[in-house]
Structures are given as structure tokens and as C-alpha cells.
């Protein structure tokens, strides 16, 4: 399967999961604690995170913009998701360069995955960018710092939940780990 088709299918699949399933559930960590945020997990930034190593930055930016705008369309938040996703698409190359021992050009025809990065670096890579994405998104959404404790709580809690959902996605739908022989 060509790499373009594969990534296009993955984009469609992740977008469908995000819009049809995850947007419908409202998670709360405890039953009814006062002031504790309700949130939906966002896994669609995973599409940007899993693009091949060699993708040029301009393509990452354009794909990030398209992915963000698509989610925005479904959630009536014109521009907010796109803004956050374009930012992580821009920073993706730098974060990968910092985390990987070799230069990015030495990984031909490969995508970031647990298989070639190991769990720890991959999780650091994913969590950092997801945290950044959620920070931008929730700051834009709430657009006030009067309730900064609530804002921070919402950012951290939803980032952790999103990362958990991303791990579940990776375990379910990708061949990330070598089969034990």
C-alpha cells in the first residue's frame, strides 16, 4: 500500500473515531466534584504524530491545517483546533530531532512508532505535543485567565486522558510492538 493511501485512510479512520465516538462521550474523573472539568479526549493529533519521518515541514503544516479544520467543522469551533494542530505540526520535526539518536534522514520510509523509537521516547514525544496542543486549544476556547486553576486542571486532565486514548489506539490498531517469538 502506498504511503499516501495509507496515511489518507488513517486520517479518515482517526477523524471518524474522533467525531462519531469520542466527541459523544463526556468523561469525568470522579462522580460530581465541584469545579472538576468534563472533557472529551482528542486523538486526532495522532495523525500528525504518525506521519513519516521524511515528510517536509510545509506538508506537515498543510496537513495539520486540513486535519484541524476538519475537526473544527464538526465541532463548530472554527479555527481553534486548526491553530493548535498547525503549531504541533511545526514543532514536530524539532521534537523528533531532539529525541532520536540519529538524524531524521537516516530513517528512510519509516514513521514514528513504538517499534523504532521504543515506548519511552515515543510517549515523551506524543505527550509533549499533545500537552502543547491542549494548552493552545483550551486557552483559545476559554479565552480568559480569571479562572486559571480550572484552565490548568482542564489542560492537564484532558492531556492525560488523550494520551491514554492514544495508547489504546496504538495497541489496538497498529502493529507497534514486535510479535514475541
Amino acid at each position: 500500500m502506498s504511503v499516501y493511501l495509507k496515511n489518507f485512510l488513517r486520517f479518515t479512520f482517526i477523524l471518524l473515531i474522533q467525531v462519531l465516538i469520542l466527541n459523544k462521550i463526556a468523561l469525568r474523573w470522579w462522580a460530581q466534584p465541584a469545579g472538576f472539568p468534563v472533557f472529551t479526549p482528542f486523538i486526532y493529533p495522532l495523525f500528525i504524530l504518525l506521519l513519516p519521518f521524511e515528510t517536509p515541514v510545509w506538508a506537515l503544516l498543510m496537513l495539520g491545517f486540513i486535519a484541524g479544520i476538519s475537526v473544527d467543522t464538526f465541532m463548530n469551533t472554527a479555527g481553534m483546533h486548526a491553530c493548535a494542530t498547525v503549531l504541533i505540526a511545526y514543532l514536530r520535526t524539532n521534537v523528533l530531532n531532539a529525541l532520536l539518536p540519529k538524524n531524521l534522514s537516516e530513517y528512510p520510509n519509516q514513521s514514528p512508532s513504538v517499534k523504532n523509537m521504543n515506548w519511552m521516547p515515543f510517549l515523551v514525544y506524543a505527550s509533549f505535543l499533545i500537552l502543547l496542543h491542549h494548552t493552545i486549544f483550551f486557552v483559545l476556547e476559554l479565552w480568559s485567565v480569571s479562572n486559571i486553576g480550572y484552565l490548568l486542571l482542564k489542560i492537564f486532565a484532558s492531556s492525560i486522558t488523550s494520551v491514554l486514548f492514544i495508547i489504546v489506539y496504538l495497541l489496538l490498531f497498529t502493529r507497534q510492538v514486535n510479535a514475541r517469538s
Binding site: L61, M75, G79, A82
Partner: peptide, 30 residues
Amino acid sequence: NLILFLVLEIVCIILIARTNTIQGNDIMSS
């Protein structure tokens, strides 16, 4: 890359700002 990044972010911010007006934008909505 930096210029493209800035242009896209500015487009996003314009979109966000426009949704808060009365006209809104019907294309980018559910």
C-alpha cells in the same frame, strides 16, 4: 516554513475572530 506557519496561524486566528461576529461563517460549521 516559518512564513507558512505564521500565515496558517493568522488564517486560524481570523477564522476564530470571525465566528464571534453576528455573520459567523456557515462553511466551517456542523
